[in-house]
Design a protein around this nucleic acid. Structure first.
Lengths: 168, 168
DNA sequence: CACGCTACTGAGACTCAGTCTCAGCGTGCG
DNA sequence: CGCACGCTGAGACTGAGTCTCAGTAGCGTG
């Protein structure tokens, strides 16, 4: 059984648990999400489905994404832009993101000492963590070699998040 | 000289550098931002100014916030909701956020070992960081004592960011 | 088979943060 | 004075995301 079908099955099971059904639209979305992209936007998905001449409305896309998030199969993340991105979760691999502000590339990483340190901080603050989200913005190796600099330094240096956003 | 006026002065200097002026509207916004709130939303600011019967249009608010961000006096941050929040920067203290998903409270912290570890990760990935942003979502001490749990656990546990968002 | 129930869908209206445009204002300078 | 320039407010616009509602698909029962 190809990996994608396993995900479709997982979603069907999740839906069944709450008396909901795996419709063609939902299955097609799961296939699309798990077959190809990793980080994606809702609108991108809408467009991709349209390309494949599967007409799935925006409402259904958002509704299905919500279900997938509830099921734990998909996560909503901020990648430094002013709207959500989504990523599928395979296994239970938590990870964080390095985001290149010149080419937009996103590098994932997982670092146990970093996670551990966060747990220690929470403990010290008597805070019970459920989830965290770390984005590091900067310039990736390839862009640095190409002599790229993080946009106008005066804009990026002190800016909160929106470095990517500036690229539009 | 009260601290707020020092900030107004800093902003005037920044504006002067690029041939721009500190108008009454801009000064009023800086005073409001630095006098009271720490994390705020643009609309909140709009509302507060209206309350004080200082009519400042939305356009001016956003324009001024953009200038303040460029000047480094204000940062745009994501706090787990689907729009930006802003925070003023006093001194140059970088910090991260613990966000309570039951009461919405935001706790700031700074941890040098954590920062150091991030630098090491970047080095290993040959990534040149310019900025980072870490939110840890969970339940604060007060809420935990009150027996609060992070909303419906099935919704929050695996969710990316939007725990706060669910509270609306 | 007919009926009715329920979950689901698409179309499009709506919301809301944020952006843009444009006419008008104020100040400084020749 | 009269122009130039930066600034402002009003309101139109944008775009992601949500909501509503009428219609449909699929199933279970009589």
């Amino acid at each position: 059984m190809p990996a994608v079908e396993r995900e479709v099955g997982r979603f069907r099971d999740f839906l069944a648990l709450q008396g909901q059904k795996l419709t063609n639209e939902r299955a097609a979305l799961v296939r699309e999400i798990f077959a190809t992209h990793y980080h994606f936007e809702a609108d991108e998905l809408l467009f991709k489905m349209k390309e494949k001449s599967l007409k799935i409305s925006r409402a259904t896309i958002y509704r299905t994404l919500e279900l997938l998030v509830k099921s734990g199969m998909v996560r909503r993340v901020h990648l430094g832009e002013d709207h959500y991105h989504y990523e599928h979760v395979t296994g239970n691999s938590h990870h964080d993101h390095l985001i290149c502000t010149t080419c937009g590339n996103v590098i994932e990483f997982h670092d146990e000492p970093l996670e551990q340190r966060q747990r220690e901080i929470c403990e010290r603050k008597k805070f019970t963590p459920t989830f965290h989200n770390l984005q590091i913005l900067g310039v990736c190796d390839a862009c640095r070699r190409r002599g790229e600099h993080p946009n106008a330094p005066d804009r990026v240096q002190m800016i909160g998040l929106p470095a990517l956003h500036l690229r539009k």
